[in-house]
Design a binder for these strands. Structure first.
Length: 510
RNA sequence: GCUCUGUUCGUCUAUCGGUUAGGACGGCAGAUUCUCAGUCUGCAGAUAAGGGUUCGAUUCCCUUACAGAGUACCA
């Protein structure tokens, strides 16, 4: 029987989601959509100590911005609600107790202080303490204590945890959709805590397995940092008798920092000048971090860039819409090794999306920026200007620096440009050019270009000298789009006015 | 330390035993142009090292090196 594909993204609300987390969510989403399955968002807030207010809302908004839609989750509800583990707390104890009853788990009464002492003791001998088969019978556990002693301790309010009884020396054979077969001997594993009485909450391992089972998850796609926990998870499914419906696993390679060593961390971004978060974030303590959205990235570009960081289609296509990603994504083509994030490539993706955007759409985004500079302009004119300049920009906000001279005349002239071109006969040529322009009927770029060109050639002038001088008067600098396009858009009157102004301000020349 | 995972141009990657090892970002050069940007064309640049297996290894196996992750009553 083929089960309906159901995947989940299960973040912990301990802070803003960083781009690695977004990528995990994206891959889950793509996989679900491709298979016509369900994408579930589950909040794993079983660590009351690390809970950060606002983090959950941040996660939801991030996914929404990326265009990742949720089928079942904290806001959407669903057949397995609630989807926040803190609201499911009464579910987990029963399962932990089942395991104890079956001899697969046991109570442990060690205090944190006792465990610290044990660790220190081992360290002094140059060993690493492991809570495992070798020591569990010697500690205060239900394996050594009588049932009465256990009950007495519980009744008098001693704090306890339930630990998994890891088999002593067994080879666990696992399969990962990305990495293939992996085998681990349980002798190297320890007895993980499954449930803690202190806050009446399960740990990740128990909550995760129980919820994935209850929510009928078919594929677990998560970060590589979980690979070492996989044998425990396999064993838990077996202990519960759920092996037949156990989900398939896929562990994604990590995202590495652009330079230096280690995985991409939340601190890297502001240090290296690029965002690591989808959205800007302000912590409860007031610390702020940049976000792709606020830095001017298009969500589509961000998603596209993220999708290619660890996955590739096997073709040379690089630009993908979400629908194309859904159609082409496959876990088989996800790489095995960590991907070093390259901010330059992220910018390139944004530039690609910018130039392929419709002029009217860009105009709508640019108009508020113009307003911020005190400019109100006709949207149709702005659309023409945007069309002329979008290939030169990476972000919408770049458009202002590239186009300001369409909206206001230069008030000063670039010193180097003046030095280079405001000399010799050039000012005089400009005066002649002014007369020529004043007499032309057709002021479109296509008419201006040949008219001026002919005039230059006929008189034996230098095109470079004339045009660069002209440009200097029009935009005050030595860069920009084709000069006749500028003339056409700002019109004859303004063009002539700018020439007059330059002549007046810079003088008639030597 | 131990366990697991990984290793192709500076970076992201293709190659599923036989290729001049391909593409993209970045870099460099040339072309185009009234400038700058862009665009186009070209150039430089990699299979971590050593052993095997094989007629033939980037590809399969082993060792070493390096890297990453995990090793919590965190996820």
């Amino acid at each position: 029987m083929e089960r309906r594909v159901r995947v989940r993204f299960a973040p912990s609300p301990t802070g803003p989601l960083h781009m690695g987390g977004v990528r995990t969510a994206l891959y889950n989403y793509l996989f679900a959509r491709q298979h016509g399955g369900d994408f579930i968002l589950r909040i794993e807030d079983t660590d009351s100590q690390r809970f950060v207010p606002g983090a959950e809302a941040y996660i939801l908004e991030s996914l929404k911005w990326c265009g990742i839609t949720i089928d079942e989750g904290v806001n959407e509800g669903g057949p397995h609600a609630p989807y926040r583990q803190s609201e499911r707390r009464e579910i987990y104890l029963k399962y932990a107790l089942d395991l104890v009853a079956a001899g697969q788990a046991y109570y442990a009464f060690d205090t944190p202080a006792e465990l610290d002492a044990l660790r220190a003791e081992c360290e002094a001998r140059g060993e690493t303490f492991s809570y495992n088969h070798a020591v569990r019978e010697t500690l205060a556990t239900s394996l050594r204590l009588t049932p009465d002693e256990v009950q007495t301790r519980i009744d008098r309010g001693d704090q306890w945890v339930i630990r998994f009884r890891m088999p002593a020396g067994e080879e666990v054979h696992m399969h990962d959709l990305i990495r293939g077969d992996v085998t681990v001997n349980t002798a190297t594993l320890d007895d993980k805590v499954l449930y803690k009485s202190a806050d009446s909450l399960p740990t990740y391992h128990l909550a995760n397995i129980v919820d994935d089972h209850l929510m009928e998850i078919t594929h677990v796609i998560r970060g590589e940092e979980w690979l070492p926990s996989l044998p425990l998870h396999y064993l838990l499914y077996r202990a519960f008798g759920w092996s037949d419906t156990q989900p398939a696993f896929a562990h994604l390679p990590l995202l590495l920092k652009p330079t230096g060593k280690g995985k991409l961390s939340k601190r890297d971004g502001d240090k290296m000048g690029f965002p690591v978060f989808p959205l800007a974030w302000t912590s409860p303590e007031g610390e702020t971090a940049h976000g792709y959205r606020e830095d001017g990235y298009f969500a589509e570009a961000f998603v596209n860039m993220l999708a290619l960081l660890g996955w590739n289609p096997g073709t040379e296509q690089e630009i993908f819409s979400m629908d194309q990603l859904i159609a082409q994504f496959s876990l088989e083509r996800v790489g095995k090794s960590g991907a070093r994030f390259n901010p330059e490539k992220a910018r390139w993706f944004n530039a690609q999306y910018l130039r392929h955007k419709d002029n009217n759409e860009l105009t709508a985004l640019f108009l508020p920026i113009l307003a911020g500079h005190g400019v109100t302009a006709d949207p149709q004119t702005v659309a023409r200007i945007v069309g002329l300049l979008k290939e030169r920009a990476t972000f919408v906000r770049d458009l202002w620096d590239l186009s300001w001279f369409f909206f206001r005349a230069p008030e000063e002239y670039d010193a180097k440009g003046v030095q280079k071109f405001w000399k010799g006969d050039n000012p005089a040529r400009l005066t002649e050019l002014r007369s020529l322009l004043a007499g032309l009927d057709d002021f479109t770029a296509t008419a201006l270009e040949p008219a001026v060109h002919d005039w230059v050639v006929t008189n034996g002038y230098s095109m470079g000298q004339v045009m660069n001088t002209f440009r200097l008067t029009m935009v005050g600098q030595s860069s920009g789009p084709a000069i006749f396009d500028i003339c056409e858009i700002i019109g004859r009157d303004e063009t002539l006015a700018r020439i007059d102004r330059a002549l007046a301000q810079l003088g008639q020349g030597a």
